[in-house]
Design a binder for these strands. Structure first.
Length: 451
DNA sequence: TCTGGGGTCCTAGGACCC
DNA sequence: TCTGGGGTCCTAGGACCC
């Protein structure tokens, strides 16, 4: 626990809707709802004028329309939101090097790293107010709510207290009294399922939770969750403000306005999503080993399937082929409302382990390969021992499974080359007859249009 | 015609290895 | 015939957050 209220949380009020009102004066003072406008859309943000009618985030757009038919329903201009967000985050970073964005409209700032002369209440309050003014300025008139406290958890609660367009400082020492009467739902990580479990144990408020000993909470909610909730109920939270975090996955998903029943169409949709994911990976100079699909059926039940490749890839064709292979596993006969493709297990694009294990063949191996004669196609390929070879160079078979063979190419002249994928039964792939005491070696004869 | 899209983290079981 | 005990990786699902 810090001795000063040096963690700042800032939250832009009704962010998406406010940007729309900023850019379209005719919407000012009127109910605005930003979100999915189609038949299966949900509300991302409602302006305060729309909230009066009971419109809330995550509500279906259908219901929002019923509650507030005269609101403006907009699908969102993420480019504008991102730009405004960038300007605001820039202001925060002028204040302290330790800024942790949580989303486009929210961030923590560590004032202990801001080089302030003092961190007493009057100082942090003044800093918070000045920040709100600066944000108003650079964002073209948006309002923000700011909370200041001795931890992330409490700073976030603080910013809610005077929302919108307000500022609250929770002074160190007063945290527990402030928390006790609040609903357990205020604790981060307590969602509907946890609320229900706690309710069955007669726990409604933070003070109820505080009365339980740690063992009981862990029993009820599991190790990690129980531990952190027990601590937070006591106002204990020593999580640091971390400025940069590496992405762990990249994914795309789409809900269709009507359920998809045609398997071929599903395959096409997955292929397109794979291309989108591959594009994002390439843009971030990342690649990943685990390919996942997500399928939501007509009844909203959701399944996922994943497959881990031997080496990271950002290749759209390989991601697509793997994704389509994973779909084979699932019964979609009732129709599908959502499909998604994701890649996780991310690595920087050029990473040593990509090339180091198993050892790529030495250039001299290439000559050895040339002396071998092709005979038959191989029914399956052995990662790590089969070698594929064509005019691009020599490559090891990295992965084989689910109908796909991945090959990593490398030559002495060009160095490490791409990871490419082939259908396991691709007629272009030929087995080379190994010498009597040599291990199995393969050769790929790839047409120019290959992969 | 209830219920988005982008993520993160945790759990639990099985495989596999030493 | 009587069978340990970790550790790590992988998969599937669930909860949660904005």
């Amino acid at each position: 626990m810090r001795e000063h209220a040096s963690v700042l949380h800032i939250d832009l009020d009704a962010f998406f809707a406010s940007v729309e009102q900023r850019d379209k004066p005719s919407l000012r003072g009127k109910p605005v709802v930003v979100g999915g406008v189609g038949g299966r859309g949900v509300v991302a943000t409602a302006s305060y004028e729309a909230r009066v009618f009971g419109v809330r985030s995550a509500m279906s757009t259908r219901e929002a329309r019923a509650r507030c038919p005269h609101a403006a329903f907009l699908s969102g201009r993420f480019h504008a939101y991102r730009e405004t967000s960038r300007a605001v985050m820039g202001v925060l970073r002028e204040l302290s090097p330790l800024v942790e964005p949580l989303s486009l409209d929210e961030a923590f700032v560590d004032l202990a790293a801001a080089g302030l002369p003092d961190l007493d209440e009057a100082t942090v309050r003044a800093v918070g107010e000045e920040l709100r003014a600066r944000v108003h300025e650079v964002s073209g008139g948006l309002t923000a709510s700011v909370g200041l406290a001795s931890s992330k958890f409490l700073a976030k609660i603080a910013s809610e207290i005077e929302k919108p367009d307000g500022l609250t400082v929770i002074n160190p020492g007063t945290e527990r009294d402030l928390l006790r009467p609040l609903n357990v739902r205020v604790i981060p990580g307590v969602g509907p399922a946890t609320v229900e479990r706690l309710r069955r144990s007669g726990v409604y408020t933070v003070s109820d939770l505080e009365a339980l000993d740690e063992h009981e909470v862990v029993q009820l909610l599991g190790k990690a969750h129980g531990h952190s909730l027990h601590a937070m109920a006591r106002g204990e939270d020593d999580r640091a403000v971390v400025p940069e975090r590496e992405a762990k996955s990249v994914s795309v998903e789409d809900t269709y306005s009507t359920d998809v029943t045609d398997r071929e169409l599903m395959a096409d949709l997955l292929t397109r999503q794979a291309a989108t994911v591959a594009g994002r990976l390439a843009k971030q100079r990342m690649s990943g080993r685990t390919i996942s699909i997500k399928v939501r059926l007509h009844d909203f039940s959701t399944s996922s399937r994943s497959s881990t490749l031997p080496a990271p890839t950002d290749d759209a064709a390989l991601i697509a082929r793997t994704a389509r292979g994973l779909l084979t596993d699932l019964d979609t006969s009732g129709g599908v409302r959502l499909l998604g493709v994701g890649v996780s297990g991310l690595a920087d694009w050029v990473q040593e382990e990509l090339f180091s294990d198993p050892e790529p063949p030495e250039p001299s191996d290439r000559e050895a390969l040339d002396r071998l004669a092709p005979v038959v196609r191989r029914p399956e390929w052995a990662p790590g021992s089969d070698v594929i070879h064509d005019e691009m160079g020599a490559g090891w078979v990295w992965g084989a499974g689910r109908g796909v063979v991945t090959v990593r190419f490398e030559t002495a002249e060009t160095g490490p080359g791409p990871v490419r994928s082939f259908a396991q039964d691709d007629p272009a792939l030929h087995l080379w007859q190994p010498p009597p005491d040599d291990e199995a070696v393969a050769r790929a004869v790839i047409p120019p249009s290959g992969t």
